[in-house]
Computed example of a mutant assay.
Amino acid sequence: MANLLEMIKQAGLDAMEASNPLHILYGKVLKNNPLEVNVDQRFTLSSDFLIVPEHLTRYEVDLTHQHEVIVDGVNVTTRNALPEKLVIREGLSEGDPIILLRVQGGQKYLIMDKVASG
Results as ranks from 00 to 15, higher is better:
residue 13 L to Y: 13
residue 16 M to T: 09
residue 17 E to Y: 07
residue 18 A to L: 15
residue 18 A to E: 15
residue 18 A to D: 14
residue 21 P to S: 06
residue 23 H to K: 15
residue 23 H to F: 13
residue 23 H to R: 15
residue 24 I to F: 00
residue 24 I to M: 10
residue 25 L to A: 08
residue 25 L to Y: 02
residue 27 G to P: 05
residue 28 K to F: 09
residue 28 K to M: 02
residue 29 V to M: 05
residue 29 V to T: 02
residue 30 L to D: 01
residue 30 L to W: 01
residue 31 K to V: 12
residue 32 N to H: 04
residue 32 N to Y: 00
residue 33 N to S: 14
residue 34 P to G: 10
residue 34 P to D: 11
residue 35 L to M: 12
residue 36 E to Q: 14
residue 37 V to C: 07
residue 40 D to M: 15
residue 40 D to V: 15
residue 40 D to W: 05
residue 41 Q to F: 02
residue 41 Q to D: 12
residue 42 R to F: 03
residue 42 R to L: 07
residue 42 R to W: 03
residue 42 R to S: 06
residue 44 T to L: 10
residue 45 L to Y: 00
residue 45 L to K: 11
residue 46 S to V: 11
residue 49 F to G: 11
residue 49 F to H: 15
residue 51 I to T: 08
residue 53 P to L: 02
residue 54 E to G: 06
residue 54 E to W: 12
residue 55 H to C: 13
residue 55 H to T: 12
residue 56 L to G: 12
residue 57 T to W: 07
residue 58 R to E: 09
residue 58 R to L: 10
residue 59 Y to V: 10
residue 60 E to F: 03
residue 61 V to L: 09
residue 61 V to D: 03
residue 64 T to V: 03
residue 64 T to P: 05
residue 66 Q to I: 06
residue 67 H to D: 08
residue 68 E to N: 09
residue 71 V to G: 05
residue 72 D to V: 00
residue 72 D to S: 08
residue 72 D to C: 08
residue 73 G to T: 01
residue 74 V to A: 04
residue 74 V to E: 10
residue 75 N to Q: 13
residue 76 V to P: 08
residue 76 V to H: 07
residue 77 T to S: 00
residue 78 T to W: 11
residue 78 T to H: 08
residue 78 T to V: 08
residue 80 N to M: 04
residue 81 A to Q: 11
residue 82 L to P: 06
residue 83 P to M: 03
residue 84 E to F: 06
residue 84 E to G: 04
residue 85 K to M: 09
residue 85 K to S: 00
residue 86 L to Y: 08
residue 87 V to M: 03
residue 87 V to N: 03
residue 88 I to H: 05
residue 88 I to P: 02
